[in-house]
């Protein structure tokens, strides 16, 4: 833990930090304000406070964006993808960090190489395969893809978390006669859960804002995720920025709430839970 040193004058720190806080949060006010304006007002007053509050934008955006459907879908995609990534990626990361598989380094290079393949290179063959496997237009098909896309980063991150963790607890468990599965589930995961939380949150955010694969692999309205609601405010030759802003707020609120709920754990978590050295 970083030691406090009371003597240092922290006022310059705070000034810089507060300026940066304005930089980070200020722009977020823009969609918030704009979501309350009419398109006509937006055309002449796109940043400032609304002259009159038009809450009906939210109602219209909710209906036109079909948020009831898309929010539910995104929730499903996020939950299952995070679970899949943490389970499968966590197992792989644990093995790489702890079990010293022969060729482990080579495997890391392989994973790295994988993450350099651009989506647009393999999307057509993948699409053809998904169609043949009957995975097109299914939730499972999309979730499987998301797990695959997100796991290289997760494996790397989890692996380095595992590596930074002292082996003492595990060794103690092994001495007590636990097998590797028991060591992982009973010792490592309880200690590691803040790391899982971190990775889980990163993956959740990634899935929440994904739209390219979803737009291509899903062709049924009832399966589309929340980001595609954003496109529901585009017409052939234009976009309704009032509704877009209201939609933007609505697609942000759930993740923001989740983050604010977990952030204490997320941000401080790593220093608790036995990770102190």
């Amino acid at each position: 833990m970083f030691r406090r040193r009371g003597r240092t004058n922290l006022i310059p720190n705070y000034i810089i930090l507060l300026l940066l806080v304005c930089f980070a949060l200020g722009p977020i006010l823009v969609p918030l304000f704009n979501s309350l304006k009419t398109p006509q007002e937006l055309g002449t007053n796109p940043i400032g406070l609304p002259r009159a509050v038009h809450m009906e934008n939210y109602v219209n955006a909710w209906v036109q964006g079909e948020f009831a459907t898309t929010l539910t879908n995104s929730l499903i995609y996020v939950v299952f993808t995070v679970a899949g990534v943490l389970l499968l990626g966590g197992m792989a990361a644990y093995s790489l960090a702890r079990l010293d598989p022969p060729g482990g380094n080579l495997y890391l290079v392989y994973m790295l190489t994988l993450s350099t393949l651009p989506f647009w290179l393999y999307v057509i063959p993948l699409f053809i395969m998904w169609r043949n496997l009957g995975l097109l237009n299914t939730r499972a098909g999309l979730i499987i893809m998301y797990v695959a896309f997100n796991s290289p980063f997760a494996i790397f991150l989890l692996r380095s978390f595992f590596m930074s963790l002292s082996r003492d607890f595990e060794d103690a468990a092994r001495v007590d006669g636990a097998n590797e599965w028991q060591v992982m589930t009973r010792v490592v995961i309880p200690i590691m859960w803040p790391a899982f939380l971190t990775v889980g949150l990163v993956v959740a955010l990634g899935v929440w804002s994904e739209f390219q694969a979803a737009l291509i692999f899903l062709q049924k309205d009832e399966l589309l995720p929340v980001t595609t609601s954003y496109y529901n405010f585009t017409q052939r030759f234009g976009r309704d920025w009032s509704l877009t802003s209201a939609g933007a707020v609505m697609m942000t609120v759930p993740v923001l709430a989740l983050f604010l709920l977990l952030q204490r754990r997320f941000v401080t978590g790593l220093t608790q839970g036995g990770l102190k050295m």
């Binding site: 699409f127 737009l215 062709q219 049924k220 589309l224 595609t228 954003y230």
Partner: peptide, 21 residues
């Protein structure tokens, strides 16, 4: 009738893979 956000962007890959409406 399936309402498709970003319809034209979605049409191309779908057709390219022998699918689509």
């Amino acid at each position: 009738a399936e309402k498709k956000p970003n319809m034209m962007d979605a049409v191309r890959p779908a057709l390219a893979a022998g699918a689509g409406p």
